[in-house]
Computed example of a mutant assay.
Amino acid sequence: MNKRIVKLGLVLSLLLSSSAFATSPSAEDVELYIVTPADSATVTSPVKIVFGLSGMGVAPAGVKRENTGHHHLLIDQDELPEPGKPMGGNVRHFGGGQTEVELTLEPGEHTLQLILGDHFHIPHEPMVVSEKITIIVE
């Protein structure tokens, strides 16, 4: 096997370990919320979801600025992402700094929750998380 590939694999393993990332602090009076739809709303698909944030700013992924982050949307998730590690899996990333989205969701009950991630997609410390809302898609 090529020694360069092995070295690259070792470097990537180190970068992806939780100790390789410094957690970005969140502002004291920050609030993250879903503007629309409202909790318990009955909607049709596609669903327009508007994100709200006060006390911090929005910056695209990869841009490191104090008191900023970008949105991540959890759909039908029971648990929050692991602190101190990049968010992955079934998390919708809005690394371009988007503040709204239209999503096609299957009919039925769904939960929505926002979490702010820093320039590396890592939750801030303490985590900036919206309340979880429930919607019904007809």
Rank of each mutant, 00 (worst) to 15 (best):
N2G: 10
N2I: 13
V6R: 13
K7N: 12
L12H: 08
S13V: 15
L14N: 12
L15N: 06
L15C: 12
L15H: 07
L16G: 14
S18P: 09
S18C: 03
A20W: 08
F21D: 07
A22Y: 11
T23N: 03
S24E: 04
P25Q: 14
S26E: 05
E28Y: 12
D29F: 13
V30P: 03
E31V: 12
Y33R: 13
Y33S: 05
Y33E: 09
T36Y: 02
T36A: 13
P37F: 02
D39Y: 10
S40F: 15
A41R: 00
T42E: 12
V43D: 01
P46S: 10
P46Q: 09
P46V: 13
V47L: 03
V47M: 00
V50G: 00
F51G: 03
G52L: 05
G52M: 04
G52R: 01
G55D: 09
G55V: 07
M56S: 10
M56I: 10
G57M: 09
G57Y: 06
V58K: 11
P60Q: 09
G62E: 13
V63S: 03
K64A: 15
R65N: 13
R65G: 10
E66N: 14
E66A: 15
N67L: 14
T68N: 04
G69P: 00
H70T: 00
H70Y: 06
H70P: 00
H71T: 04
H71K: 05
H71C: 05
H71Y: 10
H72L: 04
H72G: 02
I75S: 00
I75Y: 04
D76Y: 01
D76H: 00
D78Y: 09
P86N: 10
P86F: 03
M87H: 01
G89Q: 10
N90C: 08
R92Q: 11
R92M: 11
H93L: 11
F94V: 02
G97W: 03
E100C: 07
E100R: 11
V101N: 05
T104N: 15
T104C: 11
T104S: 15
P107F: 11
G108L: 09
G108T: 15
E109Y: 15
T111E: 06
T111D: 03
T111V: 07
L112H: 00
L112E: 02
Q113P: 05
L114Q: 04
L116E: 08
H119P: 05
H121I: 07
I122T: 06
I122K: 00
P123L: 05
E125V: 06
E125S: 12
P126W: 15
M127C: 12
V129M: 02
V129A: 07
S130K: 02
E131P: 07
T134Y: 12
T134V: 08
I136E: 10
V137L: 06
